[in-house]
Every structure is written in structure tokens, then in C-alpha cells.
């Protein structure tokens, strides 16, 4: 069961409308290393995760990623909300407007729709936790590239927060991987 909380993990403000930035940011909504991929990847891997601590971690990070999904959605919503169709077209969002108007959609920055092939579930704890660490590092890098693409201090503040969360998640997943590997190593000597 999940309970919705009618607030964001972090306040989201934008200084000005910026359609091009919204077009880039959408990749963290529905792109390969985005928050939807993250939440679904971790929550789905729980069922075959044999380690109790790693199972809790997947639940808790997966839940936080759902919160990040709404932070990204809010950024995009606020950057786009006052735009006209002509402005959207000029910013390279004409195709998006034709298919979705101003609705958010799970795509990467090029408009490719989200696909389950972005995520993995091998059923092997070492393979899955290694995938999770890599995913966090890719998300961290994406947030850095997004920060490099804007000069809006309010947007940068939110993106920096999310970038730091990826660093923490990666760290926790590394600890989980260490615990699981240690378990396998000890078992060898029984």
C-alpha cells in the first residue's frame, strides 16, 4: 500500500518559463535513467531480493524515487504552463504539442516513449544491486548535464538536490552490495 502526501519532498520554484529546459528535463521523467525507471526498477526487484536489509532499502529508495518523479513533473509543469502553441513550436516542442498538448508524457529528451527495457531484474542480488548502483550514477550524471544546460538558479537548486540524492542512493546500494557479497563469501567456507 502507498499513501499519497499532498506536498513535495523539496520546494520547487522556477524563475521564468523555459520551454527548451522543460524539453530536456522530461528525460528525468520518462527517460532511461529517469525517476520512473528508478522507482519501477527498485520496487520490482524487491520480490526476488534475498537479503533483508537490501529488501528494505529497495522499498525505501523506490518510494523516494516516486516522490522525485513528482518533483520533476512539477518543474516541467511550471516551466511550460504559460506557453502558447507557437512558443512551444519555436522551442522544439511542436511535436509534443501535436500529440499531447501540454500534458506530461513519459518520454526521454528526444520524445521516445518510456519502455520497460530501460530497467533490469535478473533475480540475482549481485547483478541487480550492481545495476542499481550504475543507474544511480547515470542519473547523477544526467542531473549534472541538466544543470549545465540552464542558468535558472531556482531550477539549479532543485536539480542539485536531486543530484545529491542520487549520490546518497548510490552509496547505500554500494553498502547493500557489500553486505550481499560478504554473505556469499562466508557461505563458501561452510
Amino acid at each position: 500500500m502507498w499513501i499519497y502526501e499532498k506536498k513535495l519532498e523539496v520546494p520547487v520554484r522556477v524563475s521564468k518559463p523555459d520551454l527548451q529546459m522543460a524539453k530536456f528535463l522530461i528525460t528525468q521523467y520518462g527517460g532511461p535513467d529517469g525517476e520512473l525507471s528508478a522507482a519501477l526498477r527498485y520496487l520490482n526487484q524487491r520480490y526476488s531480493m534475498p537479503n533483508e536489509r537490501a529488501k528494505a532499502l529497495l522499498t525505501d529508495i523506490g518510494t523516494e524515487e516516486l516522490g522525485h518523479l513528482e518533483v520533476i513533473a512539477t518543474l516541467v509543469y511550471k516551466l511550460v504552463k504559460d506557453a502558447t502553441p507557437q512558443e512551444m513550436r519555436a522551442a522544439g516542442l511542436g511535436a509534443h504539442y501535436a500529440d499531447h498538448d501540454k500534458a506530461l508524457f513519459y518520454t526521454d529528451a528526444n520524445g521516445n516513449p518510456w519502455t520497460a527495457s530501460y530497467i533490469q531484474a535478473k533475480g540475482d542480488p549481485i547483478a541487480d544491486l550492481a545495476e542499481d548502483i550504475a543507474a544511480e550514477e547515470k542519473a547523477r550524471a544526467t542531473y549534472q548535464w541538466l544543470i549545465n544546460l540552464t542558468d535558472d538558479p531556482d531550477v539549479i537548486q532543485v536539480l542539485k538536490f536531486l543530484r545529491e540524492r542520487e549520490v546518497v542512493h548510490s552509496q547505500r546500494f554500494r553498502e547493500a552490495l557489500y553486505i550481499v557479497e560478504e554473505h556469499y563469501n562466508t557461505r563458501k567456507y561452510f
Binding site: 519532498e9 525505501d60 546518497v168 547505500r172 553498502e175 547493500a176
Partner: peptide, 23 residues
Amino acid sequence: TLRKFQEVQFGLVELQLYLDMNP
């Protein structure tokens, strides 16, 4: 109040992940 709530909750999110690894 919302800001303060978000700050305290952030501390709890961090502690939750930390405690998962350090129960």
C-alpha cells in the same frame, strides 16, 4: 510550517536509508 515539515522529513528519509544498512 511546510518548509520546516519538509526539512524534518528530509532528515527522516536520510535516517531511514541509513538505518536500513545499519539497523
